[in-house]
Design a protein around this nucleic acid. Structure first.
Length: 474
RNA sequence: GGCCCGGUAGUCUAGUCUGGCUUAGGACGCCGCCCUCUCAAGGCGGAGAUCACGGGUUCGAAUCCCGUCCGGGCUACCA
């Protein structure tokens, strides 16, 4: 039987890193097993689902490189893949569940159930009120036009167990599960029904999801049984992701969205590599994995059981690694929108020229704008630069002269000439070059000086130095 | 409260099933030195873990058993 896994995001916003990791593991497993990866959108909660959320989620998945074989876009024989388009099926399933005696209408309102729970001293679950209704009471309530939800009839005295690939055997007694709602009084299906039915109908063989869904698993198994399934899928519950303070990441949103990392200049390879390592390891030393290597080496058995804290430091380190491997042309293209966001109207060819200088000093792409700004805009020396420039008028004039007559404008020629000048004046390299850097880039931190000057061009370099010797620095 | 899951350095983890190979290994971060036109990168070195705690089993336990504590999840007509 071919392996089929799925990722089932709720489109209430961009994908956050927890979902991204679940998606990655599901994708890796499917690819490795030569299986099928399904994307299903769980938008049964109309209040939370939005079209932007839907499109944003797909875009984030694509960016990560997690292509789906079935789902919105490619389609597939088990569609539609948006739960909002499958309501008829859920309704029919609910109906047949009622006919077979596995479910019943419940006329209690949420408030009534809560009130009865409170009266019983904070009891949980459903007390079975409507399960015990007589035929007469039932038809009267039905005739009264009172809205009704549908609850699943949880059998008594059974133990539901399953073997979780990452956690081992998990058992739950049915006395701990109250009759749960499968269809809301407005006719929409709940997660339990929708996800359970879809997993069944879409032949999902391996359900990989967060450990917050462990308690939902016995209910899903019961539901499958009632719907006539004879097999149980393999379950793998991933440990939760927490932030640096140990708080669950799922409680936070925007700032932990994949999209926001992307906007801050993280490469998708770094994100994928990092996510893979968050909760899984190959051995005791390997850190760098391409997607292909992950497909080859990933295994659910080696997923850890303890919650993992998202550490941006390590993500940045991986990012640096992948930035170093990025071709100049590609890096330049990646940098264009980031420069634009920083108010720099950059030229891609110029960025391509500086890319080799940038590549070893960027942990995030958004660190680039301050380093390249001087190439595209006139710059006024910042406070620290002014300090270095103080009293350098005479020296800068000498620099100007030296550079004016250079036969060729290359980094090598510039360096040779400036070093010559420095030794003539008995200046240490740092003393000699920092003022020039300050004059040309307006700052004390920039890409390597000589290469930077070459890219800036002779005209602009001389003009910037000249404008400073003209007065301000004395 | 009940049920469930987890607990190796600041962080991710290896080792736990099949006790000795571990003076607990690697990586990020941190500190120092080297390199150096700045910032990085790179090289070398270092600090950092009573393996949550307490008992027990054993010649020997991070690894097996029991108890405790701490953290988290679920307990919805959210997913």
């Amino acid at each position: 039987m071919t392996v089929r896994t799925r990722i089932a995001p709720a489109p209430s916003g961009y994908i956050h890193v927890g979902n991204a990791r679940t998606a990655l593991y599901s994708w890796l497993f499917a690819r490795q097993q030569g299986g099928v990866f399904v994307l299903r959108v769980e938008d049964t909660d109309a209040k939370r689902a939005t079209q932007e959320g839907f499109e944003g989620a797909l875009e984030d998945l694509r960016w990560l490189g997690l292509s789906w074989d079935e789902g919105p876009g490619p389609g597939g024989e088990f569609g539609p893949y948006r739960q909002s388009e499958r309501f008829e099926g859920y309704r029919a399933a609910t109906l047949s569940l009622m006919e077979s005696g596995h479910a019943y209408r419940c006329y209690c309102t949420a408030d009534e159930v809560a009130a009865r729970r409170a009266r019983k001293g904070g009891a949980q679950g459903y007390d079975g009120h409507c399960r015990k209704l007589s035929e007469l009471e039932r038809s009267e309530l039905q005739r009264s036009g009172r809205p009704s939800a549908v609850r699943f009839k949880v059998p008594d005295g059974r133990t539901i167990s399953f073997d979780d690939v990452v956690r081992g055997r998990v058992e739950t007694g049915t006395e701990q599960i109250g009759d749960f709602v499968i269809q809301r009084s407005d006719g929409s299906p709940t997660y339990l029904l929708a996800a359970g039915l879809d997993d069944l109908l879409m032949n999902i063989t391996h359900i990989i999801r967060g450990e917050d869904l462990i308690p939902a698993t016995p209910r899903q198994i019961l539901l499958r049984e009632a719907m006539g399934a004879t097999d149980v899928p393999v379950f793998a519950h991933l440990p939760l992701l927490v932030d640096e303070r140990g708080r669950p990441l799922s409680k936070r949103w925007g700032d932990v969205a994949v999209r926001s990392y992307r906007e801050r200049g993280f490469l998708s390879q770094a994100m994928v590599n990092y996510l893979a390592l968050l909760g899984w390891s190959y051995d005791d030393r390997t850190n760098i994995f391409s997607l292909e290597e992950l497909v080859d080496r990933f295994s659910l058995e080696r997923v850890g059981r303890n919650p993992a804290a998202f550490d941006e430091n390590k993500l940045e380190w991986l990012n640096l690694h992948y930035i170093k491997q990025t071709e100049p042309g590609e890096l330049a293209r990646e940098l264009m929108p980031i420069c634009a966001a920083a108010g720099i109207d950059a030229e891609v060819t110029v960025l391509e020229a500086v890319a080799p200088l940038l590549v070893e000093r960027l942990r995030r792409l958004d660190e680039a704008p301050p380093m390249v700004r001087f190439l595209f805009q006139e710059v006024a020396p910042d406070e620290k630069a002014l300090k270095v420039l103080a009293g350098q008028g005479d020296y800068l004039k000498a620099v100007l002269e030296a550079l004016e007559n250079l036969p060729e404008w290359t980094a090598q020629a510039i360096e040779d000439r400036l070093r010559e000048l420095a030794s003539e004046r008995a200046l240490k390299p740092k003393q000699a070059f920092q003022p020039i850097r300050a004059a040309v880039t307006g700052t004390l931190v920039s890409p390597p000086l000589f290469e930077s000057l070459e890219i800036l061009g002779r005209g602009r370099t001389l003009q910037r130095i000249n404008s400073l010797t003209a007065g301000q620095v004395g």
